[in-house]
Deep mutational scan, measured.
Amino acid sequence: NRRVIAMPSVRKWAREKGVDIRLVQGTGKNGRVLKEDIDAFLAG
């Protein structure tokens, strides 16, 4: 159960899209999950 680094707005975006943010690979600094990462995860 790893800790995910993400801005609150990104966490909210993931929740709205029904995405478990822990499954998303972050591409930002220090592995931070970005809004673009959520979109890419949804795109496959």
Rank of each mutant, 00 (worst) to 15 (best):
D20T: 03
D37M: 02
D37I: 03
N1P: 14
K35P: 04
A43K: 12
D39W: 06
N30H: 12
V19N: 00
Q25P: 13
W13A: 15
G44N: 14
S9I: 08
A6G: 04
V24W: 01
L42I: 14
F41E: 03
P8D: 10
L23H: 10
A40I: 08
A6I: 07
A14F: 03
D39N: 11
G18A: 05
V19A: 03
N30L: 09
F41S: 04
S9P: 06
I5W: 06
E16F: 12
V4M: 06
D39G: 05
R32A: 13
V33K: 03
N1R: 14
V24F: 02
V4D: 05
R15S: 13
N1F: 05
A40L: 12
L23Q: 13
T27E: 02
K29G: 08
A43Y: 10
A6P: 04
G26I: 02
G31E: 04
K35G: 03
N30I: 05
M7S: 15
R11Q: 08
G26R: 02
I38L: 05
D20R: 04
N1A: 13
R2H: 13
K17D: 03
I21M: 05
A40E: 10
V4L: 08
R32M: 13
V33H: 01
R3A: 10
R11T: 05
A43H: 09
I21F: 03
G31R: 05
F41N: 03
S9A: 13
L23G: 07
E36C: 14
G28F: 00
I21Y: 03
I5D: 07
G28W: 00
G18M: 07
K29H: 12
K12G: 05
R32I: 08
L23K: 12
K35Q: 06
R11I: 13
G31H: 06
G26A: 07
K29S: 09
M7I: 10
L42C: 07
V19Q: 00
W13C: 15
A14C: 07
T27I: 02
D20L: 04
I38M: 02
R3Q: 12
I21R: 00
K17G: 04
G31V: 01
R22F: 08
D39Q: 08
L42R: 06
L42D: 05
V33P: 02
L34M: 09
Q25N: 12
V19E: 01
R11G: 03
D37R: 00
G18R: 07
A14V: 00
V33G: 00
N30M: 10
P8H: 09
Q25L: 13
N1Y: 05
I21P: 03
D39L: 09
V4A: 06
E36W: 08
G28R: 01
K12I: 08
P8C: 15
V4C: 08
G44S: 14
A40P: 02
A6N: 03
G31W: 03
L34I: 08
R11V: 11
K29M: 11
R3Y: 07
A6C: 09
R22L: 09
V24A: 03
A43D: 11
A40K: 13
K29P: 14
L23W: 11
K17L: 13
R32T: 08
M7V: 12
I21A: 02
G28V: 02
I21H: 00
I21S: 00
R3N: 10
L34T: 11
V4R: 06
K17R: 12
D20I: 04
G18E: 05
R15C: 15
V10E: 06
M7W: 15
A6L: 04
G31F: 05
Q25M: 13
I21C: 02
L34C: 09
D39F: 06
V19W: 01
Q25F: 12
A40Y: 09
G31T: 03
G26Y: 01
R3I: 13
V10Y: 02
A14R: 01
V10K: 02
G18V: 03
A43L: 13
L34H: 05
A14E: 02
D20H: 04
K29R: 13
V4E: 05
L34K: 07
V24S: 00
A14N: 01
E36D: 10
R32G: 06
I5R: 08
D37G: 00
S9Y: 09
S9G: 11
K29Q: 11
V33Y: 01
G26V: 02
E36K: 14
R32E: 15
K12V: 06
A14H: 02
G28H: 02
N30P: 01
L34Y: 06
G18Y: 05
I38F: 02
W13K: 15
V10T: 05
G31P: 01
G26T: 03
P8G: 08
W13N: 15
A6Q: 04
A6H: 04
I38R: 00
L34Q: 08
G44W: 13
Q25A: 12
K35A: 07
A43M: 12
P8Q: 10
V19K: 01
L42P: 04
V10H: 02
V10Q: 02
V24Y: 00
R3S: 11
I5T: 08
D37Q: 01
L42V: 12
D20W: 04
L42F: 07
D39V: 09
V4P: 07
I38S: 00
W13E: 15
Q25S: 12
I38T: 00
E36Q: 12
D20F: 04
V33Q: 02
L42K: 06
D39R: 07
T27F: 03
G31N: 07
G44E: 14
N30Y: 12
V19F: 03
L23M: 13
R2S: 11
S9D: 14
R22M: 10
D39A: 07
R22H: 09
A14S: 04
S9H: 12
Q25E: 11
K29V: 13
K12S: 08
V19R: 00
E36M: 10
I5Q: 08
F41R: 03
K35D: 03
D20V: 03
W13Q: 15
M7R: 15
D37A: 02
L34R: 08
D37P: 01
N1H: 14
R15N: 12
L34P: 00
R32N: 06
E16Q: 13
V4I: 14
R11K: 10
W13S: 15
I21W: 05
V19H: 02
V24K: 00
G18P: 00
A43T: 11
